[in-house]
Design a protein around this nucleic acid. Structure first.
Lengths: 251, 251
DNA sequence: ACAAAAGTGTTGTTGATACACCCATGT
DNA sequence: ACATGGGTGTATCAACAACACTTTTGT
């Protein structure tokens, strides 16, 4: 009996949500790839890979970053999101996905890597109370299902483009998780690199809170979230206005 | 290359932390089993099973409840905890564990099932700022490592009994998670069954907050956590004192 | 001097804690 | 009547949001 179980090992892959920030536009971005092969050929999806036997899932997620965008930094912060195991999530063979999130300290230009015909940064935003991803004419919505079971039971809305597999659900789980951690462990700020200004921090917070930069009062933001930050000096000014202080994420 | 990856599928098992509550002693309990076979033969551990191809991980966790304690309820609340993939976590073959938590609405007597020579409820408590599990002379501590990497790098403290595998670390992650959700989604209250009194709710909160029932003011508890509860009438009194109101977890 | 960017201070409101008081039941 | 268990009310204090004000830079 136990022997039978051992043979029936499901496919395991790693899905990685790679977040980044563009200082020019002051916007948050997420990486999507256009799949080069079946299933879901030519559809946009979150980057995936398989885990090798001698690496941990975290290491596999980091390897994915290197393969997809050719970035060779020593290490970026990667953290576990959740595991997706619903039998309905794939049509053919049973597959289990371990989802991770990576916060890139810079936003490099992309070149399509193994398994992808195209790689692109999608701007993370919101419209009508829903999270979304935008790049040019392309637009993807986060799933609006309230529970996992509801998501897999309902058919996808027609008349709009959808991400491959259950990636719209994974995206929704990810954005919600980040939002919930904003008040006590805002690791998403790591996309700003080593140091950042309060304004940059607020522009990262804004889309997750479904509000705008201007609506987050700088004074109040400092008072409520300042304990999570460490003051590390001044920025040198190159434009009108008082130069901002620089901060770093504590711990 | 891809073909090679597919063949190298790691072992996947499900670990389930089964929580319960004893109304007589007003204490929280966690289920441990004594392993009947290698590895870690005759050591205490969290109950484990392998996932079958036609069930989700959640379903496997529920099946585990039935196998270990012979409980045949329609469904109990089970939720995902985390996934443990560190290559150092097992000595021989690579293994990945998907950890789940089940909140049992009652506390049945146990009979040792498949793969276990003994099954026992361990009282969940704390000593010297650390979570622990107690049953008779047996005592297990939650891991005090601050990060996952720190846990797997450090040797276990000698001079005390340890749970099998990395289960002391999983236990620590679980207790911390429950504590963090106490203020906005206290699913742990499901171990109290359909309805419960405020006193019972406070006695569930107490060990996770490392405090005592008496130190949690009933009036303030109602004001701060009342929005999570629904008033569903009075209990019939059978002992001195005013009969308490009954509550149910909202949603 | 003035506009722009950023940091500081002040006030009103909300929510949490401490604790006194009132209500219902069994003996 | 009174002890026991449980709910209600109030004063105090801390956290937060709104918004006015001051500081530092570039033109």
């Amino acid at each position: 009996m136990a022997g039978v179980e051992l043979l029936e090992r499901p496919l395991i892959n790693i899905v990685n949500l790679i977040w980044s920030f563009d200082r020019a536009s002051e916007q948050v971005y997420l990486l999507l790839v256009k799949r080069a092969s079946a299933p879901y050929k030519n559809r946009w999806a979150l980057p995936e890979t398989f885990m090798r036997t001698k690496e941990s899932a975290d290491q596999a997620a980091l390897r994915l970053v290197k393969e997809k965008i050719g970035l060779e930094l020593a290490s970026f912060h990667t953290e576990q999101l959740a595991t997706f195991t619903n039998p309905k999530r794939t049509k053919k063979e049973r597959a289990i996905s371990l989802a991770y999130m990576t916060f890139l300290p810079e936003m490099p230009t992309l070149r399509a890597g193994y398994g992808a015909s195209e790689v692109r940064w999608f701007r993370f935003g919101y419209q009508a109370e829903k999270y979304c991803l935008v790049s040019g004419q392309k637009l993807f919505w986060a799933s609006q299902a309230q529970t996992e079971q509801a998501y897999y039971d309902q058919p996808l809305a027609s008349g709009q483009a959808h991400l491959a597999f259950d990636h719209e659900w994974i995206f929704q789980v990810a954005a919600t998780r980040i939002k919930n951690k904003l008040d006590y462990q805002p690791n998403i700020l790591l996309i700003l690199g080593n140091t950042f200004t309060l304004k940059e921090a607020r522009s990262v917070y804004a889309p997750f809170l479904m509000t705008t930069l201007k609506q987050i009062d700088n004074s109040n933001f400092k008072k409520t979230h300042g304990h999570l930050l460490k003051d590390v000096g001044m920025a040198t000014a190159g434009r009108p206005g008082r130069p901002p202080r620089l901060y770093r994420l504590k711990l």
